[in-house]
Design a protein around this nucleic acid. Structure first.
Lengths: 213, 213, 213, 213
DNA sequence: CATGAATGAGCATTCATTCAT
DNA sequence: TATGAATGAATGCTCATTCAT
């Protein structure tokens, strides 16, 4: 069934075009203010076509979120793989650096993840899609968790629930990014962007470490 | 001028009623999806009345944000005041506890602060109001900064830029709250709400501490 | 009843203040876009007070129109009185000059007259007021009619219905003013303001005159 | 490209339907008081559809004005073409008659032209459209100017600036129409509609003529 | 008399979604 | 399958008018 395959490929390609157009439009105006019209125009596609590929405007956001997460986990995975299993602290630094790099090199994806997390989307997004997103989010945290687990096993970090500690580190980094992402809020801490981020990372790493106390 | 006083009081009371109605409506539907109509209905007030007290829909959000911040700083101040100046670590714990309590006892205010921080509000809100909000936000961070400054002075914390370290701690706590504030995201870390929050607090405190390293 | 008199005087003065405020506000924004609020503010009077003196927003316009007409007829009367009864043509020129001067020195009144004439006001204005305005308008035209009657009687003008001929002259002058009153329309005739006006006047006067034909 | 042609035709037809509906609605209530809703209802079209064809409510007025002007110039052109070039006075009478006929047979178009001329429309109407309207207005006056130029050349009219004299005639006719267009103002001159109009025409023609004076 | 707070009908405009072709 | 014309509910905001004090 080469014909069916072609069809499928074509369909997939079209979907990707729409997604990339949406990515740009959502980034420019924000999801709320972005219009389906603008997405269609940017994708050089009829407006109706969009609804052949997506249930909803929100469904586009969901799929894009999934894509952003996949991109992010890919980067994190690569960063993690590049580190010796013997130095979990270095691995965590590499992961954090990769996250920062992601937020800077793909700020639209980063904003998208925030948009998805903060909008109250329950009706427009299929349960299946939501589940996939949660699963993919988990993969992100798994990498951090693994490094911490290793660190504890190696006696580098104080004992504790690795999953929770991964959450702590990730929460810290996310909070740092959020704090400096807005020019006005950035003035609150009077630091440049990577400054607060790395400071947060170091504080957390020290906090994880095997202190004498 | 009892008459003028009365008038002023009445006006202030009405404004508060509208603000409280808006607080509820914004919390329920989110600022973006909330309608001025709904606020008016909830406040049992004509729609036009709203515009006697506020320039804009966004102006309501701004004033509410300011109120939320004032409430928060009040709680934090009280918590801070209740602690001996000799134990900055306890003071930070008290501050963090007060922040958690705030997010739990006034979740609508908490959501409001997030809404203000994430929406792109520049046009609808007066410069004066924006400035007040920044100033009040600063007061929040000042309390944390002070405790850290004291801790460093007392030799309890490692030397460093107190303002930045305050940002680190606050970013961590905010990140933790954000992570667990959404039921779906909470499953990621498989912890109950205060669990991650306190874990974050402890990690940060250890990280701030004068480690043996 | 000195008290009643005082009351009456006071009332009249207040009414005038409101009218003058309205005159300014209507001139600035146009009747349609002017708000009662703005009139009240300018008159330094409570908004409700306006409705103690006027039925309607439109009633203000009507009264103002009447005042404008009274002013105009006053000017025209004076111009007419200043001319010898033996030279009706000079009298018409004087009347026309006075009208042009009026439109230039009291452009707000002039605009007001146009606004009244073009808006479709039937409901908001009392029959009595409408009648008074018609009567006052008639007085304007009477002065022109009289001059033309005299001119015909003196054999300076060709015989004809003086009332109709007065209408002709007045229509011409009004049309000229209307044509040049708007900067864009003025470009159509490529003339400065008084140019077209005086040309119209002269053409009409020649047309009225006892030609050889 | 029959499909594209059909589309274009259909689009054009729809636009015309909306324009004609607007023409009726604007004529009935006046532009200011007319609502887009009413236009949509009359055109038997969804309200949103209107905005597929027009930027603005004002854009509808502009296009309608252009149409009215085109109609008018068409009538005037035809009247002008039907007259010998040797009798400019007859040509002017024919032009004036055609104008009167236009104002009577298409009173809504006539009112529209007045509405456009008196409203303060600068923001809502594109510069291009404004220019077109000015150009079309010029064509109207050009016909009159031509006749007067011819008349002067033939020695039938006294020498003078033809453009200005055209403005004089047109101002007179417009003024006459304005004066009698409103039932109340008509009583001022105690004439039937065509009476004042023709009287104005004759006075102006005599005024243009080569009098002995 | 004077006030100005309150009202709510009214309006232009937007935009996600549908459906005939 | 692709299109884009059509829709109409929804929204923030205005303003003439009323009325309790």
């Amino acid at each position: 069934m080469t014909t069916a395959d072609r069809r499928e490929q074509e369909r997939s390609r079209r979907k990707q075009e729409i997604l990339q157009a949406a990515r740009a439009v959502f980034a420019e105006h924000g999801f709320g203010r972005a219009t389906v019209d603008a997405v269609a125009q940017r994708a050089e596609v009829g407006k109706g076509t969009i609804y052949l590929y997506f249930e909803n405007k929100e469904a586009i956001l969901a799929e894009l979120t999934l894509q952003a997460l996949a991109d992010l986990t890919g980067q994190l995975q690569a960063a993690s793989d590049g580190c010796s299993v013997l130095h979990p602290d270095r691995r965590l630094r590499a992961l954090a650096d990769a996250y920062l790099a992601f937020s800077q090199k793909a700020p639209d994806y980063y904003r998208l993840l925030n948009a998805y997390n903060h909008g109250g989307f329950q009706q427009g997004i299929s349960a299946d899609m939501r589940e996939q997103i949660v699963r993919e989010s988990n993969r992100t945290l798994d990498l951090v968790t693994q490094a911490i687990t290793d660190g504890i096993a190696l006696g580098l970090f104080a004992p504790g629930d690795p999953r929770q500690l991964a959450g702590v580190l990730w929460a810290g980094l996310n909070g740092a990014l959020a704090l400096v992402s807005h020019p006005i809020r950035r003035t609150l801490v009077a630091t440049d962007e990577p400054g607060l981020y790395h400071a947060t990372l170091e504080v957390c790493l020290r906090g994880l470490g095997k202190g004498q106390a």
